[in-house]
Amino acid sequence: MDLATKRVDPVTKKFNPTISAQEWNPTDNFIYYRVEEGDRVNMYRYSPKTRKFEKLPLKEDVIRSFNISENGLWATYTGVSVSNSNRSYLLNLKTDESTLISDPYAEQLCSLVLGEVKDWNFKSSFGDQIEGRYYLPPNFNPNKKYPLIVYYYGGTSPTSRGFESTYPLHVYAAQDYVVYTLQPSGTTGYGQEFSARHVNAWGDQTAEEIIEGVQKFVAAHPFVDGRKIGNIGASYGGFMTQYLITKTDIFAASVSHAGISNITSYWGEGYWGYSYSAGASADSYPWNNPKLYVEQSPLFHADKIKTPLLLLHGTADTNVPIGESIQMYTALKLLNKPVEFIQVEGENHAIYDYDKRIAWNNAIYAWFAKWLKGDSRWWDSMFGEK
């Protein structure tokens, strides 16, 4: 805003990346923006003089912090990428040259063998380029058939290229899976129109894109066993897991953590239900749009589910209350469908207690081993034979 004239210039109105932080640097008179752009977090600077944005050529895929010096053309930043942990750099703002100043996890990572990560995109039947990437197992053999695990967003944030994750894709791959993640409609970081498709959709189009992407990925990669595909998601991604298996039988095993099964009950309970629904279900309520609340709720289509489903939920979840998993579990048990339900005592929307998190992760690994590899020993050792 021009303080003299009070004129406001909406400089980011047509800027597609999602802005998460901004800072004006009086030394060079640029505005610096940290943005979510696709599955990356990048830095841009904007010149009020030329009215142009410029992307900074930084060394990491996901920039976690960016700090500008007070009296010089220098900055420091930290970031991660798909196959390395947090690193710290010094950046010369005049030459754009980065100097690595700290790589604290280099020694630990040198002892690990990580599989290769590759980008893979497809054009959907809706006409969009849907971006994604896949993780190969260490010591990958292209002549072998591997089971596939598919992972997708929760909340609508993209599945990040960060190394560490609650859902560690490298760890899945290390257990001899190919892992595919994609950024379907509704994902932020791809422009307003693309992300706005999330509103009043609750799986519509997004699920079709995921199914289409999985089918095309399998067709394009002969080393994937199309009969052994698992899917996993959390929160809105947990909803998507449940919704997908009411629409298709391509998955041989599914995992939903803290997923929404009934949009109506989610709307009316928990600390986040109403506020999240104000965007996801904008101007739609159970009384003026019952079709949305019923037709898009997986619970109302539980009889269509054939895929073995593992439900996980923290008992103290204030975002998606545990009743969402209880309802789906009850329905599937009444229908004699293959389902298991693990309640993590005292944990909220994510599992942070160390020991409980280890057990929670092991349950997911064991579930996929049972249904995608035909090996139930890990699951049986944890929960007993049935």
Rank of each mutant, 00 (worst) to 15 (best):
T12W: 00
Q183A: 01
V150N: 09
Y46D: 03
E164I: 09
I364G: 05
K145G: 03
D355C: 00
V320I: 01
K6F: 10
S111P: 00
Y152P: 15
E324C: 08
I149A: 05
I229T: 09
F163K: 02
K370F: 02
G279C: 02
N143T: 11
T318L: 07
S376Y: 03
S111W: 01
A363K: 02
K94Q: 13
I130A: 10
Q108G: 07
L335C: 06
L372V: 08
S284Q: 11
N71I: 02
F15Q: 06
M328P: 04
P308F: 15
T18Y: 15
S265Q: 14
P184H: 12
L100E: 15
E208L: 01
P138G: 09
N319P: 01
N289H: 12
T181F: 10
P298I: 04
K356S: 08
T166R: 10
F30Q: 02
I68R: 00
Q296T: 14
A350P: 00
E70W: 00
G346W: 06
V82T: 11
E36H: 00
F223S: 08
N288C: 12
D96R: 14
W360Y: 15
A282C: 06
I232A: 07
V214P: 05
W360N: 07
G79F: 04
L73C: 00
W378Y: 12
S195Q: 03
G155I: 06
F122P: 02
N67C: 06
T18E: 05
K94W: 01
S265L: 07
K144H: 12
G72T: 10
F140D: 12
Q108S: 12
Q183N: 12
N67R: 12
S275T: 14
K6T: 07
K59I: 03
T95H: 03
A366E: 05
V320M: 06
Y135G: 12
T187H: 02
D39P: 10
T241I: 14
G72K: 04
K145S: 14
D9T: 13
V255N: 02
L91G: 08
E295S: 14
D28L: 11
L58Y: 06
T78S: 15
Q22C: 10
Y236W: 13
P338H: 07
P298N: 13
S88K: 11
Y354H: 08
I210M: 07
Q242R: 05
A302F: 14
E131F: 15
Y146S: 01
P147Y: 05
L90E: 05
P57T: 08
S20E: 15
G154D: 03
D225C: 05
L244K: 13
F30E: 01
